[in-house]
Simulated assay, not measured.
Amino acid sequence: MANSKRDLFLKRRLRVRNKLRKNNEGRVRLSVHRSNKNISVQLIDDVAGKTIASASSLEKDLGVVGKNNIDAASKVGAAIAERAKKANVTECYFDRGGFLFHGKVKALADAAREGGLKF
């Protein structure tokens, strides 16, 4: 039986998240979502079940509305690092979901690291 791309993606997302959750108990999760048109990221406290901060390419003040390229991803990464500092978050773990760690996802992670987040 052949699996669809969506089924494989969901399987990979759960596999990644469960492995990370085992090793990073009590730390904040930096969750990435990438669509065809936009990229967004959230800092999530799983213990409290709350979103601490978020950033997206849909925000007008970042100047990349509707764009989904490496430049937009790096601006979103820098924005989430700045907002994490304001929320007193310095360490988190990077949940890439089912997305592969290259291109836009890697650019976002590098920009967040340069902004001061440790993961």
Results as ranks from 00 to 15, higher is better:
Leu20Glu: 03
Ile80Thr: 08
Ala107Asp: 12
Arg17Leu: 10
Gly77Met: 13
Ala84Val: 05
Ala48Arg: 04
Asn88His: 14
Val76Ala: 10
Asp95Thr: 08
Ala109Tyr: 13
Lys37Pro: 04
Cys92His: 02
Leu30Ala: 00
Lys22Ala: 11
Asp7Asn: 06
Lys118Arg: 15
Asn36Tyr: 01
Asp46Trp: 12
Lys104Gly: 10
Lys11Asn: 08
Gly116Tyr: 07
Gly98Asn: 04
Lys85Glu: 07
Asp71Trp: 10
Met1Phe: 05
Lys37Val: 05
Ser35Met: 12
Ile52Gln: 11
Leu10Ile: 08
Val105Phe: 03
Glu114Ser: 15
Lys106Asp: 11
Leu30His: 00
Asn38Gln: 12
Arg21Tyr: 01
Ala109Leu: 09
Ala87Thr: 06
Leu117Met: 06
Ala73Glu: 02
Ile80Ser: 08
Gly77Gln: 13
Asp46Val: 10
Ile44Tyr: 06
Gly26Phe: 15
Arg83Gly: 00
Ile44His: 04
Leu20Thr: 06
Ala84Phe: 04
Lys11Tyr: 05
Phe101Ser: 01
Ala55Tyr: 00
Leu8Thr: 12
Val16Cys: 00
Arg83Gln: 01
Glu82Ser: 14
Tyr93His: 00
Ser4Met: 04
Arg6Gly: 01
Asp45Cys: 06
Val47Phe: 12
Asn88Ser: 14
Gly63Ala: 00
Phe99Gly: 10
Leu100Phe: 00
Gly98Cys: 03
Ala109Arg: 10
Val28Cys: 02
Phe99Ala: 11
Ser31Met: 02
Val105Lys: 01
Phe94Thr: 05
Ala48Met: 03
Glu25Arg: 14
Ala72Glu: 04
Gly49Arg: 07
Phe94Glu: 04
Leu14His: 06
Gly77Thr: 11
Lys104Ala: 10
Leu58Tyr: 07
Asn38Arg: 10
His102Gly: 09
Gly116Met: 10
His33Ser: 15
Arg96Pro: 09
Asn23Arg: 15
Lys5Gly: 07
Asp45Tyr: 04
Lys19Glu: 01
Lys50Cys: 05
Ala84Glu: 05
Phe9Ile: 12
Ala55Thr: 01
